[in-house]
Design a binder for these strands. Sequence first.
DNA 1: CATGAATGAGTTTTCATTCAT
DNA 2: AATGAATGAAAACTCATTCAT
Lengths: 199, 199, 199, 199
Amino acid sequence: MSPRNVEKDLQKREIRIVHILSSAIEVMAVKGIGSVSMNDIASAAGVSIGNMYHYFKSKDEIFAELLRRGQTDYGEFVAIIAQKPDRAREKLYMICSTWLQMTNHWAYTILIHTARMSETSSEELRRQVTERFTNNLSPVAAIMEQGQREGEVKTGDPMELAFYFVSLIQGLTLQRAPGVEVPVGIEPADIVRLFLTAA
Amino acid sequence: MSPRNVEKDLQKREIRIVHILSSAIEVMAVKGIGSVSMNDIASAAGVSIGNMYHYFKSKDEIFAELLRRGQTDYGEFVAIIAQKPDRAREKLYMICSTWLQMTNHWAYTILIHTARMSETSSEELRRQVTERFTNNLSPVAAIMEQGQREGEVKTGDPMELAFYFVSLIQGLTLQRAPGVEVPVGIEPADIVRLFLTAA
Amino acid sequence: MSPRNVEKDLQKREIRIVHILSSAIEVMAVKGIGSVSMNDIASAAGVSIGNMYHYFKSKDEIFAELLRRGQTDYGEFVAIIAQKPDRAREKLYMICSTWLQMTNHWAYTILIHTARMSETSSEELRRQVTERFTNNLSPVAAIMEQGQREGEVKTGDPMELAFYFVSLIQGLTLQRAPGVEVPVGIEPADIVRLFLTAA
Amino acid sequence: MSPRNVEKDLQKREIRIVHILSSAIEVMAVKGIGSVSMNDIASAAGVSIGNMYHYFKSKDEIFAELLRRGQTDYGEFVAIIAQKPDRAREKLYMICSTWLQMTNHWAYTILIHTARMSETSSEELRRQVTERFTNNLSPVAAIMEQGQREGEVKTGDPMELAFYFVSLIQGLTLQRAPGVEVPVGIEPADIVRLFLTAA
DNA sequence: CATGAATGAGTTTTCATTCAT
DNA sequence: AATGAATGAAAACTCATTCAT
């Protein structure tokens, strides 16, 4: 085996993993998180069920990995936004509209909470999810603080404001689950406005 | 015909049903919604597993009934608040603090979303849940409108504001699920403040 | 209690029993014999399930009684026919057409065979059913013998002919079960003709 | 893609299916059709209960497949007999004696009728069973017609005669179920004779 | 790495029968 | 006699995981 091939194999493996994970989210969005079976995911990914276990040790590992990547990606996205030279209100708008546009985001959101609540998921997993959630609040809190310095964001503990901001978006995300939808519009600008001083 | 007191039987039955349902919520709060078995609920309620089926046709019916009662109770609570002679900001505060204090409320919230997402739950159930959710927005919207007339609540479509308010509270509720908790305080007054004009 | 009342009670009881039994056959014809539950029968009879056990010791007893009465009634019917002053060919015709006209007769027929085959039914029950079946062959065999004396019925062991005659009718009865039916006419005269010498 | 021999796998699967089906008939013949459980069949076939569901979606599917194969095999058998160069009376004799010699044939017969009667079995299944039954009458009807041309079979609609012939054999088959048996001999020659003109 | 057959524990559901009222 | 709640054993079915090929 040349090192070239080893590298290629690893790439292939990574592609496969990403493919399986996105298929998992996809099928979770259709079947409902609680009732997705290994078989469902394997079929959706076009992979044999036995082969799934070459990529993941268990079903729980799939969920854990899904969460890790989802939360990490989101964290990076928010961090990048936070470091931009724009004004705070614009940054909040970007986060808000981007998030709400993402299809399947509600699936991630439900998955996060399912993972945290299920006795099945290990204490360790729950701790990690909560830790990442909390960490991901920091960039948003930084934006809130920036906004307060700019005189546009309401006063109050920036971390608390960030918490409310993210919770609000998550709450709305859940309302966008497929099936029947709540017949009330969602306007990112209006959401951001709640956190601003000027009416 | 019957040597038994029919009315008393019906009362007993209702009491039993309520008891089973609250046991169900209780155990769901501990075990996690996805993994509650009929056996868990039966044990928690101190009822034999076979007997459960005298009160509910299926596990799904338990969930459906739980949702119906939970949403109806909440709707009545909000309607009563809305009709009080208090100011809007005070009403919002009452809703917010009451809701966040309720133990197990996160369980209802997750259950609502689980029900709406699972392919298992019928289209009919999903429709009903969404309809009740939407109906329950109205009293909150009325409060928003009142607040706008009083000059304290921010401008904007009252229904939209109500939607945000409820979504925010639901989003926060989810963060209060047992296990590891997010280390950020939740202050009802601060939440309400987001919807007010005066900083 | 006057003896008058006791007698009346017994009459009432008998009426009730007959009513339950006919409801049982009725519902077996709809639900299928294998899947009739005590509850089904009780509901069909408009009797509470607990009350069923005042009239029958068990579900098996219902089946046993159903068989006993069905076979006894049939036996009496055939015996009466056999003793009539008519010619054998006419007697055969009467048996054949009467039987095939009876609604639900297929249910009895299947029930007989189900009872004889199921390991559930006791050895004793199976013996009784077979014994009654065999006994009920005798009057038909007598008719066959009469017919042979009259020169109209084919030669051969009368008991064997009777066995074929009854088996043929039972086989046809099974084809008349509800649902889709075999699109071939059944003519009693043609059936009888099979057992006659003259074409 | 696959390091396994796909064709061989399919062959193995077919063998397994046939094995399970014959085990099912076997155990039905012992336990009685109504009370055969998945577990019984699995044990009889030496297969784990979970594995049964790799081959059949449900218990009903097993019954449906059993019927399909049984009726198809019988149809082929009869068709082959019909095309032989022999005389009609000899063909009828072959069908009759072969059928009555087949062990477990009564089990198929009862199964057919059980399937047609049970509300459990779908309308579709009942239609199929009846259709196959009707189709299988045709070769027998052809034999009857041949016999009429040969001057040995009684006059009358050949299809109707075939219907009677098959019903008679089925009726007799049911009498051969295990347990107590009717103490009357069954002679294929005598049965065929019923359909012949010459005494 | 790839496949899908095999396992067995676990889940929901049914049902004959008993029992307190 | 009448009712229907209660029980528990058993049935059908599911599914994560392992393993031979």
